[in-house]
């Protein structure tokens, strides 16, 4: 019986090992080599990892990755939850609005990036036109080292808050009605119902949404590559962008692998921490 079970599982386990463990293992092996394709790979031990520690661009990349992650995730969770509550309370429009709000996250990243690039162009973009029309000074948006990360976070939030909203809406619809009935009988005000009942009960759903977005946000790439390529300077160069450029523009595959393995470790660590958090808030 047990043997049959193992045999049945074997293909799936083998497939998973090949698809996950092999690329990771190969990437790790590559990260221990000096390889720029002009010669055979040369084993250099941990030299690439030691170089990371002394590389200011690595630390800039780490800072940008974390900053972008925090701003985007917090904004998306707040706005997504708010949208979900709005949708949940306006039942008549729910289907129509749900169809409309999913449109940003089904759009290809290239379309999203190019659209916002034009909208936010400091010379000809509509965003500055609107700002000046309402008496505000124009902004350099993606061209400002100070504003580039918040601007990219804004684009990502525009695209992915509806995704959070749909997940949270699903959670809202599955909450037990009896708790709300009890609150109504006790005369609890609506605000207290939201903060003391709805939100705590939604925490496992919100945590799940946070885990899903965290994986994407920590390896954020497409919108940045399309809009700024990591610039101005290195102001929006996340670890993923830096690793990609090192590998595919400068052909330092060993060092790029060390960057990517480090980033993968950060992603795995974050997902494990968030999974524990989700388990802690499950009711």
């Amino acid at each position: 019986m047990r043997r049959g079970f193992l045999l049945l599982c074997a293909p799936a386990v083998l497939f998973t090992l090949v698809m996950i463990a092999f690329p990771f293992g190969y990437g790790f092996w590559m990260s221990l080599q000096k390889f720029d394709f002009t010669g055979a790979p040369q084993f250099i031990g941990s030299a690439n990892y030691l170089r990371l520690m002394d590389d200011p661009r690595f630390w800039t990349g780490m800072r940008v990755t974390i900053l972008l992650y925090v701003i985007s995730l917090v904004s998306q969770l707040i706005i997504g939850t708010y949208l979900a509550v709005l949708l949940h309370s306006s039942k008549g429009l729910r289907n129509l609005v749900r169809t409309v709000i999913i449109s940003p996250f089904i759009m290809p990243p290239v379309v999203v990036g190019m659209t916002w690039l034009v909208l936010l162009d400091p010379s000809i973009g509509a965003a500055n036109y609107v700002l000046t029309k309402v008496g505000l000074p124009p902004s350099e948006w993606l061209a400002s080292p100070q504003w580039v990360v918040p601007t990219i976070a804004m684009i990502d939030t525009w695209q992915w808050s509806p995704y959070i909203a749909l997940i949270v809406l699903g959670g809202l619809q599955s909450l037990p009605v009896s708790v709300y009935e009890a609150a109504q009988i006790d005369g609890a005000p609506r605000r207290a119902v939201f903060w003391r009942i709805t939100l705590p009960l939604l925490m496992p759903t919100i945590a799940t949404a946070a885990i899903l977005r965290s994986v994407d946000l920590l390896r954020f790439f497409d919108i940045i590559y399309i809009t700024t390529q990591g610039g101005p300077g290195n102001a929006s160069a996340t670890l993923n962008i830096y690793g990609f450029r090192m590998g595919f523009e400068f052909f330092e595959f060993g060092y790029a692998s060390a960057l990517v393995i480090t980033l993968s470790t950060v992603v795995l660590g974050s997902v494990l921490a968030l999974t524990r958090l989700r388990n802690a808030v499950t009711w």
Partner: peptide, 21 residues
């Protein structure tokens, strides 16, 4: 230079000049 010049490549430069800006 134009605002946001640090993100400008040939496409923006061409567009600006062609548009008479």
């Amino acid at each position: 230079g134009p605002p946001g010049v640090v993100n400008n490549s040939y496409t923006q430069i061409t567009a600006l000049y062609r548009a008479g800006r």
